[in-house]
């Protein structure tokens, strides 16, 4: 049993089994979700698509959880998985250095060319000082993900995990299956991921 679960695709947003209304699709959907449910973090607009996706998905989860926000804590880890690493950011950065006659490497694009930037973004916003990990897998494999979460819980400091699948191939193609899970409820994690 997961405490809370959110699914975001370019066409759909489902929070704890309930479909959320929206007007936009693709990358514009993420901006709509930000404006509707967040709105106070303009750094969102500087992020790559993977980080935007992770930020809005985590916000929906944490708002559903309803606990006090932005208080420093070490007992929550952030553990994400995907297949495409930071492909969208890598492509955006490559575009700034593709042509020798127009070679202007973008620092703002470069800083997102690692998938684990999104785990850091979420940890910074929420003052999480526990573990953050981003693991790139050949495919969405619930068994391996459950094993990694189990490893994260071996740290006695970690009492809950904001984790799951967070994949993005370009600005309009992405998939988030994120959840919040407590250590006590971890036994059923594998079947819940399926």
């Amino acid at each position: 049993m997961l405490n809370h679960k959110v699914i975001i695709t370019p066409n759909e947003v489902i929070l704890d089994g309930k479909t959320l209304d929206h007007n936009e699709q693709g990358g514009a959907l993420l901006t709509e979700l930000y404006r509707t449910y967040v709105g106070d973090y303009p750094k969102f607009f500087k992020m790559d698509t993977l980080s935007k996706l992770g930020l809005v998905a985590s916000e929906l989860l944490l708002q559903a959880e309803g606990e006090p926000r932005f208080e420093a804590r070490e007992d929550r880890a952030v553990v994400f998985f995907n297949r495409s690493a930071s492909l969208q950011a890598d492509t955006a950065y490559q575009a700034t250095i593709q042509e020798p006659e127009n070679f202007f490497p973008s620092p703002a694009a470069f800083v997102y060319t690692l998938p684990n930037i999104v785990t850091g973004e979420i940890a910074i916003r929420n003052k999480y000082y526990g573990e953050t990990s981003f693991i790139v897998l050949p495919e969405n494999d619930p068994k391996i993900m459950a094993q990694q979460l189990q490893l994260a819980f071996l740290d006695t400091m970690t009492q809950s995990i904001l984790g799951g699948w967070l994949d993005c191939t370009d600005e309009n193609h992405f998939e988030a299956h994120l959840f919040l899970i407590d250590k006590q409820q971890f036994d059923t994690i594998e079947s819940s991921l399926l």
Partner: peptide
């Protein structure tokens, strides 16, 4: 600080 680097790129570009 990243914005500062972007401004340097902006001026060169």
């Amino acid at each position: 600080s990243i914005d500062a680097l972007e401004l340097i790129v902006l001026m060169e570009k």
